[in-house]
Design a protein around this nucleic acid. Structure first.
Length: 463
RNA sequence: UCCUCGGUAGCUCAAUGGUAGAGUGGGUGACUGUUAAUCAUUAGGUUGUAGGUUCGAAUCCUACCCGAGGAGCCA
């Protein structure tokens, strides 16, 4: 007999048919009147399937009565209309086979409430909770929707390198990759001799696939990456990970306005997909995690994202009458408190801030004609803050070179990146979206460590 | 990295410097359909680690470890 998934069984199409289901026990309630109720979950959907186990079953006393939360079983029985109120169908079991028992004294994921902090210490088991099952299904759906969105629009999925020898991707501290023996590092005088290392030079884990995906967009028109990125920053916040996943689309023959339009369309596509296809999970988040999340997402979907220049943003902040710890001033980056004021109080929806001062942005961003700003954009959303950072890329080789030098870097390592401007140069633009921040935004989860299976943060790389 | 707060039963949390407690989960008993079942009863502790002050420390002091919130950095 073929195993049925609980998601299918709960649709109730096969009432009065024989059924075989397998999964993990969530709870067991006994009625000494002669039977027990088992709530079974197999991960195929949020809801559990109720199993009615009659005390007449051969292994009732020896096994069924010892099925604590976490135990794994298979159930053969009949799918019937439920007599109780909480569910429309349930299974009357003829046979319960136990795969594995679960000792409640040692198993921390019972039916009792457990804090997210505690669950992080048992991340290999937390997926068996309502919250993490729901997060995982939503995360999965967001990944699928990402590919659908870009594939439907003619973007090619590019696998950019994880290991890079560019010490220059321009985004923070990097993790070193080496096969050198730390107890016997080869040296030339005082310098480490990286010519003896695996790649013959210093190498690192990537902090961004952008430079590589630019080269593919400048040949295929539209390309995107969706891969892991690594930042060795000592960031201890609910919005940062040392290892996270990033989506980076890049479009040739596109400017900053095209970039902003793509970002807005993409975010709305993700939200629409999740609202339509993860309704049960989203209801759970709305009930238990953030009581405004469904309303917020619907609002975001309906509203047009505000386009606002950095200069205008500073102006609004200065005239707001709001007391800030850091006074907004042209030339300084927007502080978290400024971003929150704009997204949560002034506009109450996502905003796209464009044209930042060149001195606070990366070398590859296109310089505007005013000589002061660059064609950069940040998409800011309520609660999370920056969810997307992007720009039109500098396509003038002289300006690109002078920016590289201004930042005290060498031209030589960028030879291939600069070639893109020499051979069939085109205006192009793209952005990066932090995947975990998007999962946070959609689910309402407070801590980014709770929206990735096994989080990596400073001093923490368990599992 | 900085600031603030915290670490007590398997879990969630109480406890003026003076006998370490409750809820929940577990055991046992009761209940003919429960929905975080309910009721009764019972077991469960090196109070994060190492020092110190004190007649006496979960409580005060020092150092370290771990966690949370905020900031910076960013996605």
């Amino acid at each position: 007999m073929k195993r049925a998934y609980i998601a299918e069984a709960l649709k109730g199409k096969d009432v009065d048919q024989e059924i075989l289901v397998k999964g993990w026990v969530r709870t067991r309630r006994d009625s000494k009147g002669g039977f027990s109720f088992i709530e079974l979950n197999d991960g195929s959907c949020f809801n559990n399937l109720q199993i009615i186990v009659d005390a007449d079953l051969d292994n009732y006393q020896d096994e069924v009565i010892k099925l604590f939360p976490g135990s794994s079983i298979s159930v053969k029985g009949t799918l019937v209309k439920s007599q109780g109120g909480g569910q429309s169908v349930e299974v009357k079991a003829n046979e319960i086979k136990v795969y594995g028992f679960c000792d409640p004294d040692e198993y921390a994921v019972g039916k009792q409430r457990v804090s997210f902090e505690r669950l992080r210490e048992i991340a290999h088991l937390r997926v068996r909770t309502n919250t993490f099952g729901a997060v995982t299904r939503v995360r999965n759906k967001l990944a699928k929707a990402t590919h659908d969105f870009f594939q439907e629009r003619g973007f090619y999925y590019i696998n950019t390198p994880i290991i890079t020898a560019n010490d220059c991707e321009g985004a923070g501290e990097m993790f070193r990759v080496t096969t050198l023996d730390p107890d016997a590092i080869p040296r030339n005088k005082d310098e480490v001799d990286y010519s003896k290392d695996f790649f013959g030079k210093e190498s690192f884990l990537t902090v961004s696939g952008q430079l590589a995906v630019e080269s593919f967009a400048c040949g295929l028109s539209n390309a995107y990456t969706f891969g892991p990125t690594f930042r060795a920053e000592n960031s201890n916040t609910s919005r940062h990970l040392a290892e996270f996943w990033m989506i980076e689309p890049e479009m040739a023959f596109a400017d900053l306005a095209d970039d902003a339009d793509l970002a807005e369309e993409y975010i709305k596509y993700l939200i629409t997909t999740v609202l339509n296809e993860c309704a049960e999970d989203m209801d759970f988040f709305n009930k238990r995690i953030d009581k405004t999340i469904l309303q917020t997402l619907a609002h975001v979907n309906e509203s047009e994202f505000v386009r606002l220049s950095y200069t205008d943003a500073i102006d609004i902040l200065s005239k707001s009458g709001q007391k800030f710890e850091f006074e907004p001033a042209w030339g300084n980056d927007l502080q978290t408190e400024h971003e929150r004021f704009l997204t949560e109080k002034e506009f109450k929806k996502p905003i796209i801030v464009t044209d930042y001062p060149r001195d606070i942005k990366a070398f590859y961003m296109k310089q505007n004609d005013d000589g002061k700003t660059v064609a950069a954009m940040d998409v800011l959303v309520p609660k999370i803050g920056e969810i997307i950072g992007g720009s039109q890329r500098e396509d003038n080789i002289q300006k690109l070179d002078s920016r590289i030098k201004e930042q005290g870097m060498e031209l030589e390592p960028y030879w291939w990146y600069r070639d893109l401007r020499k051979f069939g140069n085109v205006p192009h633009a793209g952005f990066g979206l932090g995947f975990e921040r998007m999962v946070q935004f959609v689910t309402g989860m407070d801590n980014i460590r709770d929206v990735i299976p096994f989080p990596r943060t400073p001093r923490s790389a368990d599992f």
